[in-house]
Design a protein around this nucleic acid. Structure first.
Lengths: 203, 203
DNA sequence: CTTGTATTAACCGTTACGGTCAATAGGGAG
DNA sequence: CTCCCTATTGACCGTAACGGTTAATACAAG
């Protein structure tokens, strides 16, 4: 990895990274061509290889970058500094929307990278991510105030269901190729308000 | 398309079709290789081309087949012969699980095919499917008994949310490569019962 | 053995790939 | 303008993969 990449204008760095996120989110590692990334970011393939020694390095950089950016965004939105589950959820998803403004395909990339099967890539990825997501799930379950929920529902099922829905929603957005953060933000808020109404105990 | 394909033992037909569903569900049309389909089904590439004139023909056959099989399964389960929305949902999803026993990757293929962007393929696909799914959604909304729902929720949002969750759930199953119909059936039923409890009006 | 069919290994021309390198473009200093 | 340095690229390399074909084989039935 060439340090000169970081001396590029941020705008250009972003263009390259986004192109890479896009291409790697649409195909598996093996079938995602470097040339397409170069084209998409408007630079030559040779220059891309000038910044990143090889495909694997670029991919792993993207992964590390995605993890770090996500962590940062979640922290900035003070996601875990509340005991209201739906507030947590809202902060978490809004933080991801804000990230989406700068890196539209980061979410789709992360979703796919975790299940990447190419051996040389797989090893470098799954362990740490699994740890992180399990850990944060535990924190969520510890922090949140259970009393606010309807008593007759299973919270684990609710939790799983909500995350299935979020993934399903995002999948649809990506597949139909319409990533408009403002729109997504609105629709996500509608969903969260819906969930809150449905799952919260009426008093 | 060679008629001899249909004279093959059903078991062998199924093996070939399933291999094709699998490969086409994992990559875009353009990046899904015929050789992989041949390997996966245990026949030679030459034989595969003996049955199907070319890649496009195979793909379009798979699409037509998926539509037809799904339609049949949904009808067999009498999906629309009730006015209880959750019963409809259950029958619809159980019919898809039963289909999954014979064609594990048909669901994933359908999910992807609809968003296929290759021009020569795209045209032949989207129109009719969109019509069908819109039409069946309309039937569902006309048939179902609205009085059973909680009055304070928006039914369109609920409907969308449920389908996001189903897709998100299936996505996860496919990505983690664990398509076990029995297990999926159980988990789907848990989800549906959960939804029924949550969204139904208490009397 | 003969005949017809199911099946394939080997092949073809083309394209796409990851990665390299020598050459160029461009801008600032003198 | 010249010199120099860096950013950038077109052209290239060897290899592998692709869709599709064909001539040859395996095999079963008579």
């Amino acid at each position: 990895m060439n340090d000169k990449f970081f001396k590029l204008p941020l705008e250009k760095q972003r263009r390259i990274i986004n192109a890479a996120y896009k291409v790697f989110s649409e195909s598996s590692y093996k079938k995602a061509p470097m040339s397409e990334i170069a084209d998409e970011s408007g630079i030559s393939k040779a220059l891309l290889f000038h910044y990143f020694t090889n495909k694997k390095e670029l991919y792993l950089y993207l992964w590390a970058n995605a993890i770090e950016m996500t962590r940062k965004a979640v922290a900035e939105y003070k996601t875990l500094e509340t005991d209201d589950f739906f507030e947590m959820l809202k902060r978490s998803l809004l933080s991801k929307c804000s990230l989406m403004r700068e890196y539209p395909h980061l979410y789709a990339f992360s979703l796919r990278a975790y299940y990447e099967t190419t051996p040389e890539i797989q090893n470098s990825i799954q362990e740490n991510f699994n740890d992180v997501s399990k850990a944060s799930e535990m924190i969520v379950f510890e922090k949140m105030d259970i009393l606010k929920f309807r008593k007759d529902i299973d919270i684990k099922t609710m939790y799983a269901e909500i995350f299935y829905a979020v993934d399903g929603y995002m999948l649809k957005k990506y597949r139909s190729n319409c990533i408009i953060p403002d729109e997504i933000e609105k629709e996500i808020i509608v969903l969260i308000d819906f969930w809150k109404k449905v799952y919260t105990q009426e008093v």
